[in-house]
């Protein structure tokens, strides 16, 4: 029954990727920008949660909410200061700006607190729960629970609220949406806020689960979350969730088979296979250029 435990571990890791991937995919869906700074928002979320728990003595849920609020503000700020001016600019200028923002956040963080890792306090009890003869890690189940709640919340926002409708409209056709009276700037801000809040939540969850955080922690999970987004079909919200879970399970599987040094390569091999054989992702539709 070892493999079921591994599967649960994989799903917990996958939840983290999925939460980050959601922000990536939402931002890409709406302004076609590869937001490299998204991984840094995740890192800030982890640190906000950490400071909330150690200095403000918050329990887990308030710390999670604090991180989400701080990150959504940060996300909107990044969009307002750096990306909004680039909306009519070239893709590569936007990409370089995103890389710039990402480096900026990393090194401002290092400048103020150094590069040393921080040990995350054990705030959610880590115990094994036995069920039908299988041992489950309580934290893994807790992570899964929180992720599912957040995803249901997101689905509700996107499909049941006016803001969600505006987001979908803007991502389909920005100019038409503007002509229909939708405030495009606010809608994009909201997209960044929601996406960043999810990344912030992922940061706190990551800290709790892996217990060590540092200012450069966002780079790799950020890129891998993008892989998850591409895997599911970029711009498609359920795609990001499924992509995240698949990636988490595959990575855990590769480690469990004893190839943990190759774990990071697995994500990129998946990426390349999907790009070559089905570039629009699992849920995406193939589009062809009009001639």
């Amino acid at each position: 029954m070892e493999w079921i435990q591994q599967l649960v571990n994989g799903i917990s890791l996958g939840s983290i990727y999925a939460l980050i991937a959601l922000g990536y995919t939402m931002v890409y869906g709406i302004i076609k920008l590869l937001n490299f700074a998204h991984g840094e928002v995740f890192m800030i979320g982890a640190f906000t949660g950490f400071y909330g728990i150690t200095f403000l003595n918050l329990s887990f849920i308030p710390a999670l909410i604090l991180a989400m609020v701080v990150c959504s503000i940060l996300g909107m700020l990044i969009e307002r200061v750096a990306y909004r001016r680039l909306r009519r600019s070239t893709r590569i200028a936007a990409l370089i700006t995103a890389i710039g923002v990402s480096l900026f956040i990393q090194y401002v963080m290092i400048y103020f607190r150094g590069a040393t890792p921080e040990a995350y306090p054990d705030i959610v009890p880590r115990q094994n729960i036995e069920f039908l003869g299988i041992k489950f890690n309580s934290q893994a189940l807790f992570i899964l629970l929180i992720t599912i709640i957040l995803m249901i919340l997101l689905q509700y926002i996107v499909h049941r609220t006016k803001m969600g409708k505006a987001m979908r409209a803007v991502s389909l056709d920005m100019d038409a949406a503007r002509l229909m009276g939708i405030n495009v700037d606010n809608t994009i801000s909201a997209t960044f806020a929601i996406g960043s809040a999810l990344a912030g939540a992922a940061g706190v969850i990551f800290g709790m689960y892996y217990t060590s955080i540092d200012p450069l922690m966002g780079l790799l999970p950020g890129i891998k979350a993008f892989v998850a987004a591409v895997l599911g079909g970029i711009g498609i919200i359920p795609g990001a969730m499924v992509g995240g879970f698949i990636l988490g399970i595959v990575e855990t599987g590769v480690s469990a088979l004893g190839y943990s040094n190759w774990r990071d390569a697995a994500a990129f091999i998946i990426l390349i296979l999907i790009l070559i054989f089905r570039p629009s992702g699992i849920f995406g539709k193939n589009t062809r250029e009009k001639v």
Binding site: L86, S89, T97, G100, V101, L103, F104, Y107
Partner: peptide, 9 residues
């Protein structure tokens, strides 16, 4: 990184 962002903007 600041220079990078400013030049791109």
């Amino acid at each position: 990184s600041l220079v990078l962002i400013i030049i791109m903007l």
